[in-house]
Simulated assay, not measured.
Amino acid sequence: MAEQGKSMSQDARWIGVRMGLIGAVTASVIVAVIAPRFAGHAAALSFHPHAPDLDKIAQASLVIRIHLFSALTALMIGAVLMMRVKGTAAHKLLGWTWVLAMGATAVSSLFIRAVNPGHFSFIHLLSGWVIVGLPGAVYAIKRGKVAAHRRAMTGMFVGGLLLAGLFTFIPGRLMWAVFFG
């Protein structure tokens, strides 16, 4: 049984590494495609790292603050869930909390349309994926399909949080201004 738990843990790590590499390559390609769009906006591309300007977050709209709070909540809980033993009562409680935070993050993102003013953008595809994937992952674990549950949840953590989080640091977006603008 210990051998099985060890190999499952190693499998989860390799899944995370593969998803991270796929995410990094995807992010690089997307940034390469998006960067020329900002070529005429030298001010938006200026890079001046500094202490976070939290006043910019305080001045943001309510939906953006809700989105940021729920995303950071999901990120922290997700990191804890990835490192801890699976299947325990604590895992289930944190898991349901993570599902609620991820759901709030995905739904609130539908009301944020700064990348493509007034319209959805390619980033919203990740939101749709999470909105559809969360119930599917919960259904999988309720049916005892642990591997499917693990793949779905790891994918949403890496793609729906980490990859989507990288997009918030595109020049001209709020997180870019908070840390680099």
Rank of each mutant, 00 (worst) to 15 (best):
S109T: 06
A74Y: 05
L110P: 00
H91M: 05
A79E: 12
P52F: 03
T88H: 08
A51P: 00
V99M: 03
G103K: 01
L110K: 02
R65E: 04
A51W: 08
S70G: 10
S108K: 00
V85F: 09
K56I: 14
S109R: 03
V115N: 04
V85R: 15
L75F: 14
I112Y: 02
W96C: 11
G118K: 06
M82V: 13
Q59G: 11
G118F: 01
S70R: 02
A101M: 02
P117I: 12
K56T: 10
I64L: 05
R113K: 12
M102H: 02
V80C: 10
W96N: 09
M82N: 09
M76D: 14
A104I: 11
S61N: 12
V115K: 08
G87Y: 04
G103W: 07
R84I: 13
G87L: 14
L94V: 02
A89G: 07
A106G: 03
T73H: 11
P117R: 10
L110M: 12
P52L: 04
S61T: 09
L54D: 03
L94N: 07
H67C: 02
L93G: 10
I77A: 01
D55C: 08
I57V: 15
P49Q: 05
I57C: 09
A60I: 11
T97G: 10
A79D: 08
V115R: 10
A114P: 01
A90L: 15
A114N: 12
T97S: 13
K92F: 11
T105K: 01
T88I: 07
R65N: 06
L100P: 04
V107F: 10
G95H: 06
Q59S: 14
R65T: 04
A58S: 13
G78L: 06
N116E: 12
V107N: 07
A104L: 07
L75Q: 05
D53W: 05
L62P: 15
R65A: 08
H91Q: 04
I77M: 06
F69K: 08
A90M: 11
H50P: 02
G78K: 01
Q59M: 13
F69Y: 10
F111N: 04
I57E: 03
L72S: 08
N116S: 01
G95R: 00
W98M: 12
L68R: 10
V115D: 12
M83Y: 10
K92T: 13
M76L: 15
I57S: 09
A74F: 02
D55I: 10
R84L: 13
L110D: 01
I57H: 03
L62K: 15
W98E: 07
A74I: 06
L68K: 06
K92I: 11
G78R: 05
T73E: 10
L75E: 04
K86D: 03
P49N: 01
M82E: 07
R84C: 13
M82L: 12
W96V: 05
A79Y: 14
G87I: 02
H91A: 10
L81A: 03
F111A: 11
A101G: 04
D55S: 15
A106M: 00
V63T: 05
L100W: 11
D53L: 01
L110Y: 05
L94I: 09
L110A: 00
V85G: 09
K56M: 11
R113C: 08
M102L: 13
W98R: 07
V107D: 01
M82K: 09
L72A: 09
A79S: 15
A51T: 03
L62D: 14
I64M: 11
K92C: 12
